[in-house]
Design a protein around this nucleic acid. Structure first.
Length: 211
DNA sequence: TCTATGATCCCCT
DNA sequence: GGGGATCATAGAT
């Protein structure tokens, strides 16, 4: 376990990866990468199987659309950091801030396949060990990895929260896109195919998992 | 201060 | 497949 952590720390994605101006490309590239959190209560890691791109101030579905607020400032001011916010009063949603300086792009991590700390994930979510839904859906990802809104703004170049590339490449034939979930209010932007997932993977959230 | 509102999930039918 | 949970945020008052 310790060896894995050290290996993933060496394979940490560099700032350059996040600084790309193409948030859709970044969202797609994050499929197959490894999300790692290492907090006081332990290590958890999972392979990312589902993401959504949110294209800054031009995207009606993005929190950044309404402009800069105290909550969204981290998207405007940084890149390669965590943007974590509370949804429906109970779900801690984990996003990756991307884009060049001043550009408020973000990628929501919607689902992962557990690789390490499965026991801790089960404990945090109250699910049974081996339940494939433990990090399926953004609310569950938040719980399983132990995210909290107080960690919003944490750099992904540190050792508490980061993303690693172990050179695993998902089968490109299995990568699908679809409209994003739960953004009907975003009018004409609701139909943008900004959700990416690995087709058929049981760790992908419910709708249209197998198409 | 006060109020409406969610980038959701789970449990119950 | 429908509704309740549950609360920080933002904008109005």
């Amino acid at each position: 376990m310790e060896a894995l952590l050290t290996q993933w720390q060496r394979q940490k994605l560099p700032l350059l990866f996040y600084a790309s101006e193409d948030v859709v490309q970044v969202a797609q590239s994050l499929l197959g990468k490894i999300l790692v959190t290492h907090f006081a209560d332990g290590l958890t890691a999972g392979r990312i199987v589902e993401t959504e791109a949110y294209a800054g101030v031009t995207d009606k579905a993005s929190h950044a659309y309404k402009g800069r607020t105290r909550r969204t400032a981290v998207m405007f001011d940084t890149t390669g950091t965590a943007y974590i916010y509370l949804c429906y009063g109970l779900h801690q949603m984990f996003n990756v801030v991307t884009g060049p300086p001043g550009v408020a792009h973000a990628v929501l991590v919607r689902a992962t396949a557990p690789l390490a700390g499965a026991e801790l994930m089960a404990l945090r979510t109250g699910k049974k060990l081996g339940d494939s839904s433990v990090a399926r859906g953004p609310g569950n990802v938040g719980k399983a990895f132990g995210f909290h809104i107080s960690q919003s703004g944490t750099s992904l170049l540190g050792n508490e929260i980061f993303i690693a590339d172990d050179v695993f490449v998902p089968d490109s034939l299995l990568i699908r896109s679809s409209p994003r979930i739960g953004v009907a209010y975003a009018a004409e932007h609701a139909d943008w195919p900004y959700r990416f997932f690995i087709s058929g993977d049981v760790h992908v959230s419910g709708i249209r998992r197998n198409k």
